[in-house]
């Protein structure tokens, strides 16, 4: 059976590649240091495949038909989508997928009464591209991308994301292969992409949320960090943290917060987190 070997989370702000040097030098240094440490820990865990949980920014699905979750099932993934080349200041990249695992997840989740849409050619924006740039730049790890809806109403609640995380943990572990799997959440922290507070970050919320992760008390986090609280800290963007809450279900105990930057220049509260202990 497959084994979960690592769990981590990071911001996927397009500023982290697209206009990196516009942030203060301290933030640039901290971001590079923290992502290098994430990569070091990821490599030390020796995963065969990274299952990356992000959100679709209305790129893969039109607004009239947005699934809650979508799995990319391709044998090879190519990014970023053309519209994001300049925005992310990125050349095209290729990452091998893991089609048998991805298809297993879709079908096995259905047997757990969890509906997952799937795409053979999933397009990538910052959600997958930025973390891949920092954590898997040489494409040594196979990738299974899973995107979620956190921007089109009705937005799922943190409780729902945590419940889905629990189901996917069981599904991934049930895969009949020797694969070592790392789970990576991407998105957040506070930001309001395109909204009236587009150029704002909520440092107090971000530090409070990261402190909750450091406490490692999942029930307290679910009780206190409601969807309403996320929306107050930046509508349509802060709820990307639902991916972090989903990955929380794969973990136990406190998270290591490697870095936090209230990076207004990158248009997002920016953080990197690794969990040392995985759920039994």
């Amino acid at each position: 059976m497959a084994e979960i070997v690592a769990a981590m989370a990071m911001t996927h702000s397009p500023g982290l590649t697209g206009w990196f040097t516009r942030a203060p030098e301290d933030d640039q240094h901290l971001a590079l240091q923290a992502t290098a440490e994430m990569r070091r820990r990821l490599e030390a865990a020796r995963p065969d495949v990274v299952v990356m949980f992000s959100n679709d920014h209305l790129l893969n699905w039109p607004i009239n038909n947005v699934p809650e979750y979508t799995v990319g099932v391709a044998a090879e993934h190519v990014g970023p989508a053309d519209w994001f080349d300049e925005w992310l200041a990125m050349e095209k990249y290729r990452v091998p997928g893991h089609a048998p695992l991805a298809r297993f997840v879709v079908n096995e989740a259905a047997r757990h009464r969890l509906a997952l849409a799937w795409l053979r050619e999933m397009q990538f924006d910052d959600g997958i591209s930025v973390p891949t740039h920092y954590l898997n730049p040489d494409a040594r790890f196979r990738l299974v991308p899973i995107t979620m809806n956190c921007t089109v109403p009705p937005i799922p609640t943190p409780e729902r994301a945590y419940q889905v995380g629990g189901v996917l943990k069981d599904v991934l572990r049930a895969y009949p292969g020797p694969e070592r799997i790392a789970v990576v959440a991407t998105g957040g922290l506070s930001h309001e992409p395109g909204g009236p507070r587009y150029f704002w970050v909520d440092e107090a919320f971000d530090r409070w949320f990261l402190d909750l992760l450091k406490r490692g008390d999942h029930q307290a986090l679910l009780r206190e960090c409601t969807l309403e609280r996320m929306e107050e800290a930046g509508s349509g963007g802060t709820a990307e943290l639902l991916a972090w809450v989903l990955v929380l279900a794969f973990t136990a105990g406190p998270a290591d917060v490697l870095a936090y930057m209230p990076a207004v220049a990158w248009r997002s509260g920016t953080g990197m987190v690794v969990w040392n202990e995985l759920a039994s």
């Binding site: 009239n64 989508a81 053309d82 089109v152 109403p153 909204g195 929306e231 509508s235």
Partner: peptide, 24 residues
Amino acid sequence: MGNVERCDKTLPTNAMMYHVRKDA
């Protein structure tokens, strides 16, 4: 809820933007 709740999922502009971003 937040600003994002104000969107009109049936508005033609929202449909148009999905296609324009994908089509050179």
